[in-house]
């Protein structure tokens, strides 16, 4: 009884002194200051025109002060459309490859003993302890024409693919292939970890029940494990697809400069072209392109979740 009333008094104090509101408000204040306000600045900037002042943009002198020319340019200049398409397709290919490699990895993590599971999980997370840039540079080295990796692949190609001419090396750098390869490498953990979290929660007796009712292992996977892991696939897919489509560093370092991804276009507009309003427009369009499907998914997922709650 005594501890109960002490607990109650603590709760009252907590409410009265405003700690409760402070704790609830903190993440919102953070979001407001570091996401919403900057986004608002970018949004407003996208409605301005380039100017030779600092910062390099200006608004019209009279009503309506803003211009929608940048948005029109987005659709007129094939460079942007093409960059969006390449970004989306690169991100989609990366996501699919990550899923194909990551799913068996995650499934294997749930099936091995505790010791091995911890070791494998460690191996999945370990690359994060090295700088991201360093890992991309390591790939530049590996893909270079004189590396053992390139020589090995060249040897394999020359032996396995019969043709008149033998290659001395495979040109991998500065290509879309290189971008996808490095993106798959960098984003694989973001696929494996949510998938593992999902698969690990699945009740293994369901697999036993399916097998007991006559299903062979492959059938058990298709009937039970796969459909029940769809939330994990979607979570992992979003975690890979969204950053991959806006990826800036990897295409800049290993990609084809004449056929850029959208992240690189934004960067170039900001720095080389000094066209901040155009860069902002491209960025806002990308955000809309990525956020809308995510919001739709979250909306339907929360609806589905509500349906899963037991009926009273």
């Amino acid at each position: 009884m005594a501890s109960g009333s002490a607990h109650f008094r603590l709760k009252q104090w907590f409410h009265r002194t405003g700690w409760r509101s402070t704790i609830i408000a903190t993440p919102y204040v953070w979001l407001l200051a570091f996401f919403f306000l900057p986004f608002l600045i970018v949004l407003v900037m996208s409605l301005a025109t380039q100017a030779d002042v600092s910062p390099p943009f200006a608004f019209g002198a009279e009503w309506p002060y803003v211009t929608f020319d940048n948005i029109a340019r987005l659709f007129e200049d094939s460079l942007y459309i093409r960059a969006y398409l390449i970004s989306i397709s690169n991100a989609a290919i990366t996501t699919v490859i990550c899923l194909i490699i990551g799913y068996p990895m995650a499934l294997c993590l749930t099936r091995v003993g505790k010791t091995w599971r911890n070791i494998f999980l460690m191996l999945v997370i370990l690359p994060f302890w090295t700088s991201f840039l360093l890992r991309v540079y390591a790939w530049i080295g590996l893909m270079g024409t004189n590396s053992w990796f390139n020589k090995g692949l060249t040897f394999l190609y020359n032996t396995l693919v019969p043709s008149g001419s033998t290659l001395t090396s495979i040109p991998m750098m500065n290509s879309n292939f290189a971008v996808i390869l490095v993106m798959v490498y960098c984003y694989l953990p973001f696929m494996v970890l949510p998938l593992y979290a999902n698969l690990e929660r699945l009740d293994f007796t369901l697999n036993e029940a399916s097998m007991d009712l006559g299903s062979r292992p492959w059938r058990v996977f298709l009937d039970i494990t796969l459909p029940l892991s769809i939330p994990g696939i979607i979570a992992g897919g979003l975690l890979v697809f969204i950053p991959a489509s806006g990826e800036f560093v990897i295409p800049s370092l290993v990609g084809d400069a004449s056929d850029p991804m959208i992240g690189r276009v934004i960067g170039d507009e900001f720095t080389a072209a000094r066209d901040w309003p155009m860069a902002s427009t491209v960025a806002v369009a990308l955000l809309i392109l990525l956020v809308l499907p995510t919001m739709a998914y979250t909306h339907f997922d929360s609806k589905a979740q509500a349906a899963r709650e037991p009926n009273p």
């Binding site: 009740d203 007796t205 029940a209 007991d212 009712l213 299903s215 009937d223 459909p227 029940l228």
Partner: peptide, 20 residues
Amino acid sequence: SPPYERPVNMMFQSYALFPH
């Protein structure tokens, strides 16, 4: 024999109904 080849079925303690 593996479970899927036995003329035996089981009712699990947790029932193990397929939730989907």
